[in-house]
Computed example of a mutant assay.
Amino acid sequence: MALKVLIVGSGITSAITCNYLRERCRSSCRVIVWDKARGVGGRMSTSRSPTMDSCTADLGAQYITTVPENIEASKVVYSTCFTKGLLHPLQSLIEGMHTFPKNTVHYVAPRGMNSLVKEFLTADEVQFNRLVTSVTQNGNKLDVETKDGYKDTFDVVVLTMPVPQILQLSGCVESVLSDDKEKREALSAVKYSSRFAVAYFYDKTLEFDVPWSAKYVVDDELLRYIAIDNKKRNSSATSAVVFHTTVKFGEENIERDVADVQRDIEKHINTLFPTWPKPVSVKCQKWRYSQATAVYEGSPGCITLIQEPLLIAGGDGFTKSTFDGCITSAKAIVNVVEKYITKELAVEGNR
Rank of each mutant, 00 (worst) to 15 (best):
K4S: 14
S10C: 14
T17E: 05
T17F: 05
C29Q: 05
C29V: 11
V31K: 01
G39K: 14
V40F: 09
P50M: 01
M52A: 04
D58A: 03
A61P: 06
Q62N: 05
I64L: 15
T66F: 03
V67L: 05
E69Y: 09
E69R: 14
N70Y: 13
V77L: 10
Y78W: 15
G85M: 11
G85Q: 04
H88K: 13
L93R: 11
H98S: 10
H98L: 12
F100D: 08
F100V: 02
T104H: 11
V105M: 08
V108T: 11
N114Q: 15
F120C: 08
L131T: 15
S134P: 02
L142D: 06
L142I: 05
L142P: 02
E145C: 15
T146C: 12
T160L: 04
T160I: 08
L169K: 02
S170G: 11
C172Y: 08
S178P: 00
R184G: 00
S193F: 00
R195P: 00
V198A: 01
A199T: 11
D203F: 02
V210C: 12
V218P: 00
V218W: 02
R224M: 10
Y225T: 06
I226S: 03
I226A: 10
D229M: 13
N230L: 01
S236R: 09
A237P: 07
T238C: 13
N253L: 01
N253V: 00
E255C: 11
R256W: 05
R256Q: 15
D264A: 11
T271E: 15
T271L: 13
F273V: 12
P279M: 08
C284G: 08
Q285T: 15
T293N: 06
I303R: 03
L310A: 12
F323S: 01
I327A: 09
I341Y: 03
T342I: 09
K343S: 14
L345A: 02
R351P: 00
